[in-house]
Amino acid sequence: MTKINAFTYQPLTIPSHTESVSKQNQKPNAQKSSFSESLEEEYEKLPLKLSKHARERIDERDIHISQTEWNLIHSKMQEAKKMGINDSLVLTKDAALVVNMPNQTVITAMGLEEANTRIFSNINGTIVINH
């Protein structure tokens, strides 16, 4: 025991089960890492790339686009690229995406409700997918 300014302090005892406690504390991180890895694997399956910004927006805004829709978006992007379109707005039934054709990359994403009040600039084409 140590006395400091009239207060008595006693060192804390370290429980004998610290190893099991530290393992328990690692489980949520392991699950989080596992979830992040799973999400990353899903993004890797897409026929086009997502910028970091677009990934964050899709996650934040809880936007869900099926693999079939991603394939259709990619297909339409190929058509638009042949027409000379470099940057495009892609409208689906649930989302608005800004894409860069030369890099085959989704730059940003938002839900349709949010997109209703926006002005999109620096695009030279629009792709409408209404499934």
Rank of each mutant, 00 (worst) to 15 (best):
A6I: 00
F7Q: 14
T8H: 12
Y9I: 10
Q10Y: 10
P11R: 11
L12C: 09
L12T: 12
T13E: 13
T13G: 08
T13M: 11
I14C: 04
I14N: 08
P15K: 12
S16V: 05
H17M: 02
T18F: 06
S20Q: 15
N25D: 11
Q26M: 11
K27R: 10
K27F: 05
A30M: 10
K32W: 07
S33T: 09
S34E: 12
S34D: 11
S34G: 08
F35S: 05
F35I: 12
F35W: 11
S36V: 12
S38D: 06
L39G: 04
E40W: 00
E41R: 11
E42P: 00
Y43D: 05
P47H: 06
L48K: 04
L48W: 08
K49V: 09
L50Y: 07
K52P: 01
K52Y: 09
H53G: 02
H53V: 03
A54M: 02
A54Q: 04
R55Q: 15
E56P: 00
E60C: 00
R61H: 06
D62G: 10
H64K: 15
H64C: 09
H64W: 06
I65M: 05
Q67A: 13
T68Q: 15
T68K: 15
T68V: 15
E69I: 12
N71I: 13
N71Q: 15
N71H: 14
L72S: 05
L72M: 10
I73A: 02
K76N: 07
Q78M: 13
Q78I: 14
K81I: 06
K81T: 12
K81A: 12
M83Y: 07
G84H: 07
G84R: 05
I85P: 00
I85N: 09
D87P: 04
D87H: 09
S88F: 05
V90C: 04
V90I: 14
L91I: 14
T92S: 06
T92E: 01
K93Q: 13
K93I: 09
K93Y: 03
K93V: 07
D94R: 05
D94H: 13
A95V: 03
A96R: 01
L97S: 02
L97T: 00
V98K: 02
V98R: 01
V99P: 00
M101V: 00
M101I: 04
M101N: 10
M101Y: 00
P102I: 00
Q104N: 15
Q104W: 12
T105I: 11
T105V: 12
T105G: 01
T105D: 04
V106R: 02
A109D: 06
A109R: 02
M110I: 03
G111N: 14
L112V: 11
E113M: 07
E113L: 07
E114N: 10
A115D: 05
T117H: 13
R118I: 08
F120Q: 01
S121Y: 10
S121G: 08
N122G: 10
N124A: 07
G125V: 02
T126N: 09
I127T: 05
V128Y: 14
I129A: 01
H131Y: 09
